[in-house]
């Protein structure tokens, strides 16, 4: 069971070195996610913005609000925004992905990279992403998506002690996303693409259909 305070504590420790460890490793998925966001345009919510490592990848035409539960990570994001003059970043706010403080339909894109398996209640977070998404908008996730069996599964088990230090949940099979999607009649899965490193990660895109 992951608790929010555990996540906060974990990322407080990771804040000083996160970019060094994860900068290059996740550069490709970050770029792909940013390109998908640019195709939608408008207002983007970056959930788990962390040190703001993804912010530089976004098209300047987007308006970005970033949230995170870790004050230490957000402090680094603020430094990055100020030092690089990232004018498309409107606000960085301490907020929990499971209890978003935005009205319904506030964003054209809800982006969450390496977030869903770190929160105590992933379904609650995903429900919130859907709630604040405007019709026609997209939820874009980059996430570790577990394999049910086979050699990849064995590698995942080997990786587990490492990712647990990030507060990442061990098991996050795609079926969990499918079950969640089954309870969201207004959402459609539009893309599922394997991502490096190792193909253990996936870019997932969901769109909210216009009810009219």
């Amino acid at each position: 069971m992951i608790r929010t305070q555990d996540v906060k504590r974990s990322y407080r420790r990771w804040a000083p070195v996160y970019d060094i460890v994860f900068g290059k490793l996740f550069a490709h998925p970050r770029r792909e996610a940013a390109e998908a966001a640019a195709r939608v345009g408008g207002r983007l919510l970056e959930v788990g913005v962390g040190t703001g490592i993804a912010l530089t990848a976004y098209a300047p035409s987007l308006s970005i609000v970033g949230i995170d539960v870790s004050r230490e990570m957000l402090a680094r994001a603020r430094l990055r925004v100020a030092s690089l003059g990232l004018a498309h970043v409107e606000d960085l706010i301490e907020m929990d992905a499971q209890d978003l403080a935005f009205p319904d339909g506030s964003f054209d894109v809800v982006m969450a990279q390496y977030v869903v398996n770190t929160v105590p209640d992933p379904d609650a977070a995903l429900d919130e992403f859907a709630r604040v998404l405007r019709p026609g908008g997209e939820i874009i996730l980059v996430n570790r998506v577990g394999a049910a069996a086979g050699p990849r599964r064995a590698v995942e088990r080997g990786l587990q002690p490492i990712v647990e230090r990030l507060g990442w949940r061990s098991e996050f099979p795609f079926e969990r996303f499918e079950r969640w999607l089954g309870r969201q009649p207004s959402l459609r899965l539009v893309e599922r693409r394997a991502m490096p490193p190792f193909g253990h990660f996936a870019l997932l895109r969901f769109t909210r259909i216009d009810p009219s």
Partner: peptide
């Protein structure tokens, strides 16, 4: 900067309390 975390919010019915529920930083 607003802190929109429920566990850092002050409960309105015990206005005198300044303690944090889980002893978070600061």
């Amino acid at each position: 900067i607003p802190i929109m975390l429920v566990d850092e919010a002050r409960r309105l019915d015990d206005a005198a309390s300044t303690t944090r529920p889980e002893g978070a930083a600061q």
